[in-house]
């Protein structure tokens, strides 16, 4: 599989600098360098022949402060761009209040991928199959970008525009993703479930994330549903969310949400599955994600990652 020809930038033109602060990284990016942290997408992509490694690289993996998980003033959570999947899947706040993000982080690659792959790289790679995308969207994820002109904030729904494409400028560095506070007006739960042929070293064939809030009488008072690997970008499905609000969050309601997700899907056929199969499975996987989020909202314990436990539901 080695594709050496794809990596033939002339050795003399290659440069590498290591940034120890955001300003240095942004300056290097303004001069044409691409940022690299864990390298689990950038370097592997070059090995695949997807795109050669950029001639100019700026290492951002040791910038202090970008690997922090910290509460925001609004009661939400700020995830630094260098936070790894290994950190996310074990962070007590993520497990307690954003378990769907833990579900997703725990099934990215292998433990070596998770130990090095960062949330920032995952987000900026803009893959429609990225596992963390659906839970980040459902939890109101906002990208914090720093460029030469300063900082700006972009909702993830407005960041991703297609596979590998985003509205970030080449000289803007993602420094953090901020999540909403968990819903305060009731019990809530979240989940991420994917269709997978194996449990590790897998890319989602289909995925779905859900956040469900229940009122005191158990009625669904709020719902967010997003689908993965079913369109050029990961996106929320308003019809699926509407199908849940006001229901008891039971099987029939989850099934209706799944049907809405399948209707909204615009999948492609590729080596991992046909478009028809993906559309059919969109209903099943969305249903499972919703039922898992409801169980967690009811206080039931569902192991992380949820994908391994939802067969038959």
């Amino acid at each position: 599989m080695s594709t050496a020809t794809s990596m033939t930038t002339s050795a003399s033109s290659r440069t590498y600098v290591e940034a120890r602060d955001v300003a240095t990284a942004v300056a290097a990016m303004s001069a044409g360098a691409r940022p690299i942290a864990g390298g689990t997408d950038l370097v592997v992509g070059a090995r695949h022949g997807k795109a050669p490694l950029p001639a100019a690289l700026v290492g951002i993996h040791r910038i202090p402060g970008l690997a922090d998980v910290a509460p925001t003033d609004g009661g939400g959570l700020r995830l630094g761009a260098l936070v790894t999947h290994a950190t996310l899947m074990a962070d007590p706040t993520v497990l307690a209040s954003y378990p769907g993000l833990a579900d997703a982080s725990a099934i990215v690659g292998s433990h070596a991928t998770r130990a090095n792959g960062t949330l920032g790289g995952n987000v900026m790679n803009s893959s429609p199959a990225m596992d963390t995308g659906a839970p980040l969207l459902c939890h109101g994820g906002v990208a914090v970008l720093v460029g030469p002109a300063g900082e700006r904030r972009v909702a993830l729904a407005d960041l991703w525009t297609g596979p590998g494409r985003s509205t970030a400028a080449p000289d803007e560095l993602l420094v953090a993703v901020e999540l909403d506070a968990p819903p305060a007006d009731g019990a809530s739960g979240s989940s991420y479930v994917r269709l997978q042929y194996r449990r590790q070293m897998e890319i989602a064939i289909v995925g779905a994330g859900a956040v469900v809030t229940l009122g005191a009488d158990g009625t669904v008072t709020g719902a967010k549903v997003a689908i993965t690997a079913l369109a050029p970008v990961i996106h929320r499905v308003a019809e699926a969310e509407a199908a849940l609000v006001g229901t008891d969050g039971g099987f029939e309601a989850a099934k209706a949400a799944g049907a809405a997700a399948a209707a909204a899907a615009r999948p492609i056929s590729d080596v991992r599955g046909s478009a028809d199969y993906r559309r059919a499975m969109a209903a099943v996987i969305t249903r499972r994600a919703v039922l898992t989020a409801v169980r967690r909202a009811r206080g039931e314990s569902v192991p992380v990652p949820a994908s391994d436990t939802t067969f038959g539901s």
Partner: peptide, 30 residues
């Protein structure tokens, strides 16, 4: 093995973390 982060034959520890060293740049391990 694969030179592609699939097989793990190249795995090393970098500051204690498991790393597929085929897909990690030497400059980053400085």
């Amino acid at each position: 093995g694969c030179d592609d982060s699939e097989c793990g034959a190249c795995m090393m520890l970098v500051d204690g973390r498991p790393v597929n060293s085929c897909s990690y740049l030497a400059v980053q391990a400085d």
